[in-house]
Design a protein around this nucleic acid. Sequence first.
DNA 1: TCCTTGACCTACT
DNA 2: AAGTAGGCCAAGG
Length: 118
Amino acid sequence: MDFYERVKIILAEIPEGRVATYGQIALLCGRPKNSRQVGYALNRGLAGKGAPAHRVVNSRGILSGAASFDTPDMQKQLLESEGVEVFWEKDGWRVDLKKFGWKHTMEDAVRFHAMLKK
DNA sequence: TCCTTGACCTACT
DNA sequence: AAGTAGGCCAAGG
C-alpha cells in the first residue's frame, strides 16, 4: 500500500479537537523516518480532499508556516473552532501539545496497523 | 545519476 | 532556553 494512502487513513483517525505531529503520523504509518513526506503529502494535497490537515503540527506544536491554506490564519481558525487553544509565541502560532496533543494508545497503533494492509 | 529542496526530528551545545 | 548540526527520504530538475 502506498505511503500517502496510509497518511490519508491515519489523518482520518485524529480526533476532533486534538492535534498530531508529523512524526507521529509517520510512525503510525509504519514509516518512522518519513515525517518530511507527511508534510510533502499535505503540501501537495496527496492526502485527499477532506483531510484534516489543520490538525497536524510539528514536534514543538508550531503551526505550519507554509500557507497551503486559503488564508494565512485558516489553520488557526479551524483549530479554535474545535476548541483548541492557539497562541502566538515568538515566531509563530502554537498549540500546547501537553493539552491538545493526540495521545494515541498502543491499541490504536495495533488497530491502525491492521488497516494498513500490505 | 547527482544535486537540491523541503508543512520534519533528535541530540547536542 | 535558544541555536546548530546532522540525519531522513521522496520528488523534481
